[in-house]
């Protein structure tokens, strides 16, 4: 760990100023469950760490229109315990409970989960998000058992680590982002992520002085569920996850949306799956067909074809769980 300044702004404006003063050399800290490790291991070496923990307006979960306005610093425990989330977003509760660690969910936040760094082992060994070594693409030529099966035609082949993003995307969430001079923008959550061409481009589309302040989560009478495959019951991260949301229109799916986790450098939205589900009868046959559709276009690497199979199963089971 290098020596760094630790800033504790009390307001969003102050946080943006602190980030703007040191462009590209600051790191935003939310719960810190992963960042502290990354700092200690030298994966990130910022000159300044800007903690958002003392900005009270980022911690609340408020009703807003037909949904919720969730502060980026709301903890995962707060989210999972919220009545509105429990009633209208079971997929989010499943994702949080699946982490399997009280320590992480009590201090980890929704914003931190979304913006966290990949857990790719080449990245964590210091080879960068676009892992290269002596001209070799480490992921493509190395051990890619946990890597991307979609969106991996570019140089980045890690998988996005967020456990919440698939569920939030399926539910149509938006991210409220504040940046330079307090400028605000609202983006569909899937637009928060990208596959970088270069390691220094990061795994989100945020500018170095931008932060996610809130997540806008529409809640309605939608069926929704998430299914994830984890190696361990206890603390572990999914190998694959799938979230779905749809309305039950007389036994058929309407306004179907989905999100896949841990299969691409960004949370993956499968257009073919959404298409296969839209208007289809809500039955087991449909679930299996949508699962198969979700796997269309997969481009597995040398040893992760099993994740294509797991994607089919996870999507099928998410739909079945949502139907139940």
């Amino acid at each position: 760990m290098n020596a760094f300044e630790y800033a504790m702004p009390k307001s969003i404006d102050e946080a943006i100023s602190l980030l703007s003063e040191t462009p590209g050399e600051s790191q935003v800290m939310a719960g810190g469950t992963d960042l502290v490790t990354a700092l200690k291991q030298g994966i990130v070496s910022p000159k300044r760490v800007v903690s958002l923990r003392h900005i009270d307006e980022l911690k609340s979960i408020e009703a807003s229109g037909d949904g919720l306005r969730i502060g980026a610093m709301a903890t995962l425990d707060d989210l999972a315990a919220h009545d509105g989330v429990k009633a209208g977003a079971a997929s989010i509760v499943t994702a949080i409970k699946g982490i399997g660690s009280q320590q992480i969910t009590s201090i980890g936040t929704i914003g931190g989960d979304l913006c966290q760094l990949p857990r790719d082992w080449y990245f964590r060994l210091g080879f960068g998000l676009v892992a290269q070594y002596e001209g070799k693409d480490l992921v493509a030529e190395g051990d890619n058992r946990y890597h991307a099966i979609f969106g991996n035609d570019g140089p980045a082949k890690f998988v996005n680590a967020s456990v919440l993003a698939p569920a939030l995307i399926a539910l149509g969430a938006k991210a409220s982002v504040v940046g330079s001079g307090g400028a605000k923008r609202e983006i569909a959550l899937e637009e928060l992520f990208h596959a970088p061409k270069k390691s220094e481009d990061g795994n989100t589309t945020l500018a170095s002085n931008e932060i996610v302040t809130h997540i806008l989560l529409p809640l309605g009478a939608r069926k929704n569920a998430l299914y994830h495959v984890k190696p361990r019951h206890g603390l572990d991260w999914p190998i694959v996850s799938a979230a779905v949301a749809f309305e039950n229109d007389g036994g058929k799916a309407k306004n179907a949306r989905g999100g896949l986790g841990h299969v691409a450098p960004m949370p993956w939205v499968s257009a073919s799956a959404a298409k296969a589900l839209e208007g289809a009868a809500l039955d087991e046959d449909t679930a299996a067909k949508v699962g198969a559709a979700a796997a269309e276009g997969a481009s597995p690497l040398s040893r992760n074809a099993y994740k294509v199979h797991l994607t089919k199963v996870a999507v099928k089971r998410a739909i079945l769980a949502a139907m139940a």
């Binding site: 082992w121 051990d143 361990r232 206890g234």
Partner: peptide, 21 residues
């Protein structure tokens, strides 16, 4: 890792130990 010769899971995140669950 065959290319770099390094251990990819020299941590307790990917060097998994059973939990009581």
């Amino acid at each position: 890792d065959n290319i770099t010769g390094r251990m990819l899971n020299a941590d307790l995140e990917f060097y998994r130990l059973a939990t009581l669950a």
